[in-house]
């Protein structure tokens, strides 16, 4: 099937810690999943539309992302990838972009100093600037968290998620990744209610994150919350959901998806 519209993206997320890809449940108990380059190439071959690498310890440790692996990934793969973790300045961002990343994602540093979003957007263009939001429902309100890479340092802020989404867009964010912490790692589906609420006020691309466990969860996020992409980690890492089969499943149901490519020469 051929669609003449922008396709919805399937985005494996690789949490990076000490140069390895790791995954925990509800942001805790990280286990090593494998080598960064091996996993990047595996997902590229499987037909992933984009990759996101989160250096999950960068912000809590007060350092920027380690650029050596960014360069290795950039040389090896021919699909876009985004790098997140401790990017706090134009200088940090430039180093990551010049190492070959296509986009940078800011989370905690943007909460500490929202003007960072404006500075990055002015310097590199909105399309390079992704704002990641870790959001959790507390007392009937979705609220923003920070330092989520380290459970001992995670802080619940008083900022309401919807307010932060609005502000991030006004400051020049080119894309929002909404990570719904209540459901993250549980594989019972994306938080459709929260995604719908954010979608209603989000004019830039919105990526669903947290909770994917089965093909229908992706279909629901696209059909019901109208997200532009769906991000997942463990369900891809474990092989429980294979991307080529997932793409065929979604295409069969009429979703705009880039078909899996034939094997590469």
């Amino acid at each position: 099937m051929t669609t003449t519209q922008l396709t919805r993206r399937l985005i494996p997320c690789l949490d990076v810690r000490d140069g390895k890809v790791v995954k925990g449940v509800r942001f805790r108990d990280h286990v090593v999943m494998g080598d960064i380059l091996d996993l990047a190439m595996r997902y590229r071959d499987a037909g992933a539309d984009e990759l996101v690498f989160y250096d999950i310890t960068a912000s809590p440790e007060g350092r920027s992302v380690d650029r050596t692996w960014v360069e290795r990934v950039a040389r090896a793969i021919d699909i876009p990838f985004c790098v997140a973790g401790g990017i706090r300045s134009i200088t940090d961002a430039r180093e990551v972009l010049f190492a070959g990343a296509d986009k940078i994602s800011v989370n905690t540093p943007a909460l500490e100093r929202p003007a960072l979003i404006r500075e990055l957007s002015d310097e590199f263009g909105a399309q390079c600037v992704v704002v990641g939001i870790d959001s959790k429902r507390i007392d009937s309100e979705w609220r923003v968290n920070r330092y989520t890479g380290d459970p001992n340092k995670t802080q619940q802020l008083s900022i309401r998620t919807l307010d932060w989404v609005r502000q991030a867009q006004e400051l020049g964010a080119g894309e929002i990744v909404l990570n719904c912490m209540n459901v993250d790692g549980e594989r019972r589906g994306y938080d459709l209610e929260q995604l719908k609420a954010v979608r209603a006020i989000c004019e830039v691309p919105l990526i669903a994150s947290g909770g994917a466990g089965a093909p229908e969860h992706f279909a629901n996020a696209f059909a019901l919350a109208d997200v532009d992409g769906a991000l997942a980690a463990s369900v891809f890492h474990s092989g429980e959901v294979e991307i080529p089969a997932l793409k065929l499943y979604l295409l069969d149901r009429g979703h705009a998806i880039r078909p899996p490519e034939p094997a590469h020469a």
């Binding site: 003449t4 539309d49 909105a126 880039r258």
Partner: peptide, 17 residues
């Protein structure tokens, strides 16, 4: 031109004609 059906930036995979 941005709309609900065509958000801007145009970011992602699209078909060529």
């Amino acid at each position: 031109e941005a709309s609900a059906a065509a958000r801007v930036p145009h970011m992602g995979w699209n078909a060529l004609q």
